[in-house]
Amino acid sequence: MRAPASILPLALESISFVAGGRAIVDAISCEIGAGARTIIVGPNGAGKSVLMRLCHGLLQPTTGRIVWRGAGTTPVGRRQAMVFQRPVMLRRSALANVEYALALHDVPYRGRRALAQTALERVGLAHLAGRPGRVMSGGEQQRLAIARAWALRPEVLFLDEPTASLDPTATREIEAAIAAIYATGTKIVMTTHNLGQARRLGDEILFLHQGRLVERAPAERFFTTPATVEAAAFIKGELPWT
């Protein structure tokens, strides 16, 4: 399966998302390119999750445009996948959950099982392939969600606070799975409020504050010498607890 030309970069052209009279995302413009792992950080309510849903196409911006510059006229929905903070599994086995996603992407029936099994192995869940998805632990479900997303071979993988409700062991396993997916050439875009995680996984940081993109910097520079007052205050306030 040879991947077609890249749909990246992803250009956000002054996008805003207004709900209940409040701009949750406020005139954000930027371009997200291939390669680097992009981590979106910011305090609760900064608009991280909404921004990610706008990028993924689950929400439409109130104003502004989202353009996949590399895509031309080809549909982009199938070239990207998303892992949610709370994964939703179907009432069927772990393996069948992955096969379901493959079926939605028109993968022929004969090929699904092998692809799904490979994806489960990739996240260390091969031994739980037959267990119903909804009775797995939170960490296992999140790894299953990552396997399900990875099985679709997305060019871009969005992750929205994938470890927010997990213990440290499960968090480590999730981070390892994300690293493995990145290693296969998938663009990673992830939100987190865990700055330790942002440091471990991030190449570049987008810092959101009250719906606006306040700072964008390579990870190292963002954490050592933030350029804005807001970012400096956020790092100072958050780091002791990570």
Binding site: R53, H56, L58, G77, R78, A81, M82, F84, P87, V88, Y100, A101, L104, H105, R148, L152
Partner: peptide, 9 residues
């Protein structure tokens, strides 16, 4: 399920 199913296509 809505968001998850739409995300999966």
């Amino acid at each position: 399920y809505q968001e998850q199913l739409r995300s999966l296509g």
